[in-house]
Design a protein around this nucleic acid. Structure first.
Lengths: 210, 210
DNA sequence: TAGATTGTTAATCGATTAACAATC
DNA sequence: TAGATTGTTAATCGATTAACAATC
């Protein structure tokens, strides 16, 4: 039982770097390694070693003073920090190209998400299974959320539909929305929205091209 | 003809916010509006007005002192800054779920990318067209890059294949890679890589959930 | 005019980076 | 032991925020 009372606030930048470390550490653990120094991770991620060290210290990763961080313990610390060590029931709305891609992404399970349902309005999609996940009609959204105990919504619908569905989700008690539609969602306080913007990444790429 | 000689460096954060402004301004222009103040954009994006103002000033958006930014001119300034006003020939490697989703994403054209080819190794994919984009065998990569004048590579392959293909791309003279595989690519200086990490967004979401 | 907004400079805040002691 | 690495504090840097003058 860990005590979270006085956990320091960890910057978003640090949080976004954690999955990189996690992937490498898991790979290395697979090779039988037990220790990894911040220098090792720095080489693999092309980040400054001091950044790695600070990041791992921020999530309370265990270490041996002269030898580096303990791989297994650090994996646990990161997973625990992110809550990826216990699966949360998630569902997806909008089984288009992107939605289908996300449902087929095995990695979600190792990231704490168990996709148990998908929703769509197209008659030819409703009633099918995509990558093993059953597709229901969006009209059943509210009742399914309650009966299945769904916690996290993944929104991959056209932007016109995003706010309306969000209102339904909020109304059904959903507390976390992972939004891939290029719209800023209005939600009441206490509801967490993570906005993914494909344009942002592309803008960054294009600006680097001068 | 603009003069780029003493353009101030613009922060990555600013660059990543630009597409949001662009989408809103384009929408508003469609309604016939001509001016938008930083307050207007702040309301719509939930960003502080001063952030919006600074961002637009950074890309040289034209304004009228008491009334706000000129919508058409600001759209042009952002598109020009990002290079989204002239299409660059791009191609995609790895026509899986995500690759297919990206090929079907109409938005790329308004983001300066013209997808003219896709590559894969699966025999049942090679020779087909996906969303109008022809799929070639990866063996043809190098010759096609030269003959078609391809500039930007979108990498949506399994992580095991990413570095090998990157080496081929670099060898063929590609200068920009948009990488969706969860691996840090090794590239020589002068080659630009934009790394997308689905785990990073999910980590951010999960950390907000405590 | 009055007031909303840009233009511009200064202040603040927090992430990154540096420095160095502790140590196995 | 020597040296690589963590642990910890301080310095730096740059993005954000504040403040206020200019103005239409």
């Amino acid at each position: 039982m860990r005590f979270f009372g006085h956990k320091k606030t960890v910057s978003v930048q640090t949080i976004r770097r954690l999955p990189q470390y996690l992937r490498l550490l898991q790979e290395w653990r697979g090779y039988g390694r037990e220790l990894a120094s911040s220098t090792d991770l720095a080489d693999a991620t092309h980040l400054p070693a001091i950044v790695v060290k600070k990041d791992l210290q921020a999530v309370g990763a265990p270490s041996k003073r002269r030898s580096g961080f303990k791989i297994t313990g650090t994996i646990e610390a990161i997973e625990n920090f992110l809550g990826w060590d216990n699966l949360k029931k998630a569902f997806l709305i909008g089984v288009g190209h992107l939605g289908g891609a996300l449902l087929g992404f095995e990695g979600l399970k190792t990231h704490g998400l168990e996709m148990v349902a998908a929703f769509d309005t197209h008659p030819e999609r409703v009633g099918t299974q995509i990558h093993g996940v059953p597709v229901y009609h969006t009209a059943q959204l509210k009742s399914m959320i309650e009966s299945k105990g769904l916690k996290i919504a993944v929104l991959t619908v056209p932007k016109e539909a995003a706010q309306g569905l969000t209102d339904t989700l909020v109304d059904s008690g959903i507390k976390a929305i992972w939004n891939f539609a290029p719209v800023k969602l209005r939600v009441p306080e206490g509801v967490v929205v993570q906005q993914e913007d494909i344009g942002a990444g592309l803008a960054e790429l294009c600006s680097k091209l001068h």
